[in-house]
Each structure stands twice: as C-alpha cells, then as structure tokens.
Design a protein around this nucleic acid. Structure first.
Length: 266
DNA sequence: ATGGCAGTTCCTAACTGA
C-alpha cells in the first residue's frame, strides 16, 4: 500500500501535474496540502474520473487539505475540534490544515503545519501554539482504534541539520530553529517515527526548494514533508522515497511528493 | 546585500508562503 503526501501550492494551478503523476505513480492514498480553494470550487471531476474518493477541507486563497483514496475512507473528520473540543482548540481551526480518516485499519492524518513567517512574529507564536495542540490531538487519536497512525504532510520544520542543504544560521531560520524542532520532537515523543529515516541516513534529500533563488537547479532544498508512523506501521514500512520528477516540470509546485510504501496486511 | 518567485484576491498592489 502506498501513501503519498504533496503540497501542491494550489490544486487548480497544479491539476494537470497531479493527474499525470497519479497516472504514472499508482498510489492508494494521496494527501494534499495548500489546495487554496473553497470546497464548492474544488476541481473534483477530473480526480473522481480516475476512480478516486475525495475528502476535502479548504478555504479561500490559503491553506486547505485533501485526501484522495482508491478505496473509501472511513471516519473522516476535519480540524482539531471534533477530537479535542472547541474550548481547547480556540481559533486554530479557522485555518484549514487538518483532515483525518481511516483506511485499511490505518488512521491517516494529513497536516499542513503553519509556516511561522519569521522568528518572533505573531505567526511564529501561532505555529508553536498549533504544535502544542497537535500533540494533544494526536495523543487522543492514538488512544482510539485503530491505534495505527500515519501522520503525514507539510510540517514546515526540518527536524535535523541533515535535512537542510546549508544549516548555517539555523538558530534564526524559521523551519529550523531549536524551538520549532523541540516542539515537533515533543509531538513525536508520543510514539511516532520518521519513515524516511528508516531507509536513508545521509543528507542531500529534500522535498521543498525555494522558487526565488533557483534553489532546485542547485539542489538547495529542505526536507520538510514527512511521514511519521506508530511502531506497528514503522515495522511495515518497506520504502519511503521522494519523487523529484514533478519539481522539474514547468510551473511546478515548490514542493515535490513523498511516497511511503507499507507491507500489505495479511 | 534581505532580494530573488509564485499564487490568490479586495485582481496591476498587497498579502502569504518558506
């Protein structure tokens, strides 16, 4: 079973790239981030024509997440509130960044973690606040069936220096500060492991390259799109690979997809 | 050097992204 994650930076702008990629790379589940469209305007038809089931949670202009699946997904919820209650979540569900559902006895959690803008900014504080609530949210999901979690998406955090082409000055670089790394590590401490690092130790593997500096042609990237797994699933992981082909196309997303493959359950 | 590009909307300017 293959579960992919891809920040497409607008599903309407990237529609043809995603369709071509789905044809070429047969995945069972595709988790999308930054769809940037309200649900009523989501281009469902071309994807449903491929036989996919679509579960979407969008808003105008910004954010937005979706799950495409070859088989129906059960128990879909969006946002933190259905799990944690409105009081704990406060304003954090106004931005559409969370969708989850169960397929093949696996709870898939698709996340678009806030970027954080600049260290010390209001958005940076929002990101850290969001990560604290994420921990509570995942802890609550872990305690309910099916107990097997695949938490994937755009985390907007490079967990280690080997996940960045040039880690100098990282103390002040958003996505790499010790504070953000600690916040993510505390989320992972509930019992989640990075599937990519089961197979690949070295640096130089990235999932995002800045548009502005011709970063892709120099492979000056960051690995910020991840799959985090509970132990049962981590054991079943047989590959986790970054497909850089879509990043080479004209007018690409600034991210490229990452594919996790799991051993089929007997 | 603090910029560079891309997508969206309040659409040719301002915002957000990372």
């Amino acid at each position: 079973m293959k579960i992919a994650t891809w920040n497409v930076n607008s599903i309407r702008s990237r529609q043809l790239h995603v369709i071509d990629w789905l044809h070429q790379t047969q995945v069972d589940v595709l988790c999308l981030q930054e769809t940037k469209v309200v649900d009523a305007d989501f281009p469902r038809q071309p994807f449903e024509a491929l036989g996919l089931h679509l579960y979407i949670c969008g808003q105008k202009s910004y954010n937005g997440v979706a799950i495409f699946s070859k088989t129906p997904v059960e128990d879909i919820t969006t946002g933190f509130s259905p799990i944690l209650g409105a009081e704990i979540v406060g304003d954090l569900d106004e931005q559409k960044r969370v969708i989850t559902g169960v397929v093949n006895n696996i709870r898939i959690v698709n996340l678009y973690v806030p970027n954080g803008s600049a260290v010390g900014s209001e958005k940076y504080d929002y990101k850290l606040r969001w990560l604290k609530v994420l921990r509570e949210y995942l802890q609550a999901l872990l305690e309910q069936p099916p107990h097997n979690l695949c938490v994937c998406g755009d985390f907007n955090i490079a967990l280690e220096d080997r996940d960045i082409h040039d880690p100098k000055n990282r103390e002040n670089q958003v996505m790499a500060t010790p504070t953000e790394r600690l916040a993510l590590q505390e989320v992972l401490n509930i019992g989640l492991s990075d599937a990519f690092r089961k197979f690949t130790d070295e640096g130089g593997h990235f999932s995002w390259w800045d548009y502005r500096t011709r970063a892709f042609s120099h492979n000056r990237g960051w690995r910020i799109d991840h799959h985090y797994l509970t132990p049962n699933l981590y054991q079943k992981a047989i590959s986790c690979t970054i497909d850089i082909a879509p990043r080479k196309l004209t007018q690409p997303s600034d991210h490229t997809p990452v594919i996790l493959e799991l051993l089929e359950s007997p």
